[in-house]
Amino acid sequence: MTHALEKYFVPEPSIYPIFGSVALLLFGAGAVMWLHGIGPGPLVLFAGVAILVYMLFGWFGQVVRESEAGLYGKRVDKSFRWSMGWFIFSEVMFFAAFFGALFYVRVLSVPWLASGDNEALLWEGFTQAWPSAGPNPHADPFTPMGAWGIPALNTLILLTSGATLTWAHYALLRGDRARLKLGLFLTILLGVIFLGFQVYEYFHAYADLNLRLDSGIYGSTFFLLTGFHGLHVTIGAIMLTVMLFRTMAGHFQPDNHFAFEATAWYWHFVDVVWLMLFVVVYWL
């Protein structure tokens, strides 16, 4: 072995990116058409989604094949690590925008609206409280979502899923394929149960609590924060499912399984976001 740098894998030209671009173009155009009730909007949107799914399958499939063929050396592995880390950081900043909005309305705008000239001249009688639907006199009353029912249970479920995933990871490191599969399966199952509860909770909110997306700022922040979180759980669960299938196909070695690790990072990140949600959205 010399100290010369190992050659860095540079992929061949690829047709997949352009599919992704067309997909997003159709997605955007379709969404706008749909929002404005223009004929084939949904059709265009779903065509976009379909192409995107095709592209993701093809693209990641190729990455998996390249990886299994041993084309990625240590340096590519390191690139993947850096990139996954910074990708998750960008996701953190995306959530930060919504958490920031929640902080702002709870600490600043709602109290402002309920005091001083704002209250005296514009919103007479509005008092500061959280949850709040804002000072709109015609607001439809709603019941806020309690923390200690489903949300607490969901917290437990997600935390447990983090543990099962770590357990699976240790199994992978030991080369214990059976436990690895079991751990992955349990994690996915817990994720799906979490999502099921979440869906139930939304139905409950609309049907019984009259808590809707348009229930003032409480409804807005509640549904956008939990909704984007739910979306991320869904993506994480899909990633985990792919990992399970890959495990069953015999992929991953104890010393080479970054895809698995990346998924685990992502899952833990989603976990942490939930904990923060639980505290600032449901509990306090």
């Binding site: 702002y104 804002g134 997306l213 700022i217 956008l224």
Partner: peptide
């Protein structure tokens, strides 16, 4: 948030709903 304020009735940027 602009998109949801425009189309889905959220009130991030609407004082009447408690936003700003």
């Amino acid at each position: 948030m602009l998109l949801t304020d425009r189309h889905f009735g959220t009130s991030f940027f609407n004082a009447a709903g408690g936003g700003d």
